[in-house]
């Protein structure tokens, strides 16, 4: 009895489902589709941008760290060795300004090395000011725009000035230093240096600009 009663009900239920499906004609309006899709598109674009942001940041950071490490590998050598030289050098000897050469690749010296040099020079200069006044080094402003060649010369001159042994001096760098002294008006020291140079390198030609000093 129950089965017989349920069977027509089941048929009717299926008919209701079928009828319901025929009512499925409405669709969301086109503007709704457009708004939803536009929102999703914006969300995916944001997502893409978010993906690139950390990658580009990491790349920039990596580049920065690499460059810094490279600079630090080059730059610390000089100040460190200068401190050692300064520490080892006796006061008397310092007064006589013995010079011990440290090999420097001045052509590749970056700006950071320049900073270190200026700093080290400033400290050394402060300590030695009363004992043996040195000719002032050209100011940083004076170096602005003179090009890498001039900077290179200055570095050599500074290296000599900060205590490099005479016997180890590079002739060209030594002459550049003498030229710097002359340019700065410290003719006396320049003459002394030129004499020392001539004694160390008697065969080395003297540049025309320095020849008047040797005559004196």
């Amino acid at each position: 009895m129950s089965d017989r009663q349920n069977r027509p009900d089941s048929r009717k239920d299926a008919a209701i489902s079928d009828l319901y499906r025929t009512t499925r004609k409405e669709e969301p309006a086109g503007r709704l589709d457009a708004m939803i899709l536009a929102r999703a598109e914006v969300a995916t674009q944001r997502r893409r941008r978010r993906w690139w942001l950390p990658v580009s940041s990491a790349a920039v950071l990596l580049l920065g760290v690499t460059l810094t490490l490279q600079l630090m590998e080059q730059a610390p050598r000089l100040p460190q060795s200068l401190e050692e030289v300064e520490a080892d050098r006796p006061v008397e000897a310092e007064a006589a300004r013995p010079i011990k050469k440290k090999q420097i690749s001045s052509d590749s010296a970056p700006a950071m090395m320049m900073d270190s040099l200026f700093k080290a020079d400033s400290e050394a200069r402060g300590r030695r000011q009363e004992e043996a006044p040195l000719p002032p080094l050209p100011s940083r402003e004076a170096l602005q725009g003179v090009g890498p060649k001039a900077e290179s010369k200055l570095l050599e001159a500074e290296t000599l000035d900060l205590g490099i042994a005479q016997e180890d001096r590079d002739p060209a760098a030594w002459l550049a230093y003498i030229q710097t002294l002359l340019d700065q008006g410290d003719e006396t020291t320049a003459v002394q240096e030129l004499e020392a140079f001539s004694a160390r390198y008697p065969e080395h030609p003297i540049p025309a600009k320095l020849q008047p000093l040797s005559i004196e």
Partner: peptide
Amino acid sequence: GDFEAFQDLYARYRK
């Protein structure tokens, strides 16, 4: 970040 995947999904459940 695949927008086309959303379009496909949207089309499936839109109606």
